[in-house]
Amino acid sequence: MAIVSQVIGIDIGSVGAKGVLFDGSIAASAIVPTGWDMKETSRSLLSSLAGGKDVTALPLVATGYGRNAVEGARRTMTEITCHARGVRFLHGEARTVLDIGGQDSKVIGLDRSGKVVDFAMNDRCAAGTGRFLQMMAHRLDYSLDDVKALSCDGEVQPLTSMCAVFAETEVVAHIARGVPREALLRGILRAIAARAAAMVTKTGLTEPLFFSGGLSRIGSLATLIGRELKTEVAVHGRSPLAGAIGAALIAWEER
């Protein structure tokens, strides 16, 4: 039997599907929108990872919300375990992981060796997730790049409702009153940061804190979370891939 020199990790999230080709380090990676057909999503992810080669025989571990839709997966693992593994690959010291993705947010506590010892997830509610920010930004006619470019210091219009539907109503009322949209966006980001910080505190913060998931790309949000928790917040440019990396690491160990 040939020595397996490459493995694949796939993380099908609610908004984005992520894939990593791993050979001891990250040989290739891809991110595509999840769409409605997860089987098709995983196929297109595989073909962009393959770069024309046949990768169907490579060991594959799938994770994320759509993990059971991935064809050819050797095994599936939950995104909690895979995220934890992937984060430790990106940041070897991380003890607490805050992950805010498209439809859920979670906090994972790790021991010194990187093993998951506790976790919490938001229950059946979009408040404070990527979807929440997306809805609010859309209402303010902001793109993701606009959100990323915003400085977190300046006028703030606090947001009191965290329910995605009620918050939108509140935002509309503020727009009608003529509140500047920068101030509204800051209020929205602060509300997300406060909620995330409370979730971290509830689970228990052990430093260093690592912030992953799609929302970790928004620098001002990381800053606000750090201020709330009075701690440094580590981020990594490849953290959206953490789940896929973790899945690949598991496949790599078991190859």
């Binding site: 919300y65 693992m77 939950t78 995104e79 909690i80 375990t81 859920d104 093993k115 998951v116 010892v117 506790d118 976790f119 997830m121 229950d123 059946r124």
Partner: peptide, 15 residues
């Protein structure tokens, strides 16, 4: 919430 339960329970068992 079946899927969300599966994630929580699955992660707990993996832990």
């Amino acid at each position: 919430d079946r899927e969300q339960l599966a994630t929580r329970m699955g992660a707990f068992v993996e832990m």
